[in-house]
């Protein structure tokens, strides 16, 4: 019997390299796929939750502070607590024209003519921080805007209803 070029095991050594490379490639792909799918699921989950909160907030085309506070305590906060999210619903009033570059984290008036809005949140500290410092806004935040009618849009005691924007902001609590 002739001996092999290197030996019975030595002849198989070159084949080990592609086998190890293949195994590592496959395992790496599986790990990457798992992480990517999990990340996508988290993003879809928070968007779905935000939409659910938006449906609650935009049930009617008109909003007044009394109803807003009642819904905030009885519906919005319990919903957010069940979903384990942090949220803010900020209603802004616009007297003359809607400002699309508005600060969605603050209920304060944009222009001197606008009336002051109102908000509902389960994390007032974080909301105030985001309102004053844009760099503190979490990367996974979701913001949805909807038009709504508000009473006294100019803050001058009028009983007429004017234009407003309802901003639904959702983010995950920090671990």
């Amino acid at each position: 019997m002739r001996k092999g070029f290197v030996g019975p095991i030595g002849d198989d050594i070159p084949s080990i390299f592609p086998i190890i490379a293949g195994v590592m490639l496959f395992l790496g792909t599986v790990v990457y796929a798992t992480n990517a799918i999990e990340s996508k699921n988290r993003e879809l989950d928070i968007r779905r939750t935000t939409l659910g909160l938006a449906y609650i907030a935009t049930e009617k085309g008109f909003i007044n502070p009394t109803d807003f506070d009642s819904r905030c305590q009885n519906i919005s906060r319990p919903y957010a607590d069940r979903q384990h999210i942090k949220f803010a619903i900020v209603v802004k009033k616009f007297c003359k024209a809607i400002n699309v570059n508005t600060n969605v984290f603050s209920a304060e008036a944009d222009a001197s003519t606008d009336g002051r809005g109102f908000d509902c949140t389960n994390d007032q500290t974080k909301l105030s921080t985001m309102a004053s410092d844009p760099s503190k806004v979490p990367k996974d935040i979701i913001i949805l805007n909807y038009p709504i009618a508000v009473q006294d849009p100019c803050g001058d005691g009028s009983i007429t209803n004017g234009l407003g924007m309802l901003n639904v902001v959702v983010w995950r609590p920090e671990k």
Binding site: L51, Y55, T58, N145, Y146, P147, I148, A149, G162, L166
Partner: peptide, 14 residues
């Protein structure tokens, strides 16, 4: 939902 909000708001905005 946005378009539905538009329609609803039309009934209230003076």
């Amino acid at each position: 939902n946005y378009l539905e909000s538009v329609m609803k708001a039309m009934y209230y905005v003076d």
